[in-house]
Amino acid sequence: MRDELRIIYYIIRKDMRAYYLKPPAISWGILFPAAMSLSFYLRNPAGFGELAPGLLALTVLFSTTAMEAVVINFELRVGSLERLLLAPATFGSVLLGKLLGASLFGFIITALVATAVLPTCLDRGFDVVALLFIVITSLITFSSLGALISVAVKEVFEAQTLGNFLRFPMMFLCGVFIPIQTLPPGLRHLAYALPLTYTVDGFRQALGGTGNLSLVGDVLILTGFACVFVVPAVALLRRRFA
């Protein structure tokens, strides 16, 4: 266990050093959430607080999945992931290191966006503990999703493209811009099958609003999604080296 924890820790440290400033991480993980926040603010500064939960949720989604593509696919392409697999650790530990590295990146970016967004929510008040819970659970869930996408392909651009097939529909279905209740029944059911719905719902409650589920419910469902994404991701990674 000590070996595994040590390896996970050093993978995170190495990924921070090697990949946090890679162009795909900057463009999808930093610039995209920043540009979106800025455009919404410029369009309607007074109503910006209403969009805060959605913007934070999108920041978590894009920052983690973009970084996961970088930390996994760069290494799959040049073969350096094999270097990690030579260490005395399991496939699961190596993937967990990658997952936590991307989560940490997501946390930093989300914290930056939150610093800009939260002052607009002061009048309604917000729950810091609840916010941390929903942020951390969402970071791990979307890192897991990013990991699953990334191990399924080889190149960074493939992971980003495949990721966009999921990220953009989620943006429009999960209550970021349009309330889920106003969606047609079919799309509403689809929305409840997507993890971003629960992240937005959790953020909404943490930022003084009301949600469709309890915060605990959101956290539990997101944890379930994380498991659903991680298990096949580890299996796919193992199959790559079968």
Partner: peptide, 29 residues
């Protein structure tokens, strides 16, 4: 795995890190 090292045919070190950092990283693992 604790008992062996591998030098692959295609060098798969991290171009983003220095030579020292690359060697240290493996020592850390």
């Amino acid at each position: 795995k604790k008992l062996f090292g591998l030098v692959p045919e295609i060098t798969n070190l991290y171009d983003e890190l220095s030579a020292l950092e690359n060697v240290l990283f493996m020592a850390q693992l």
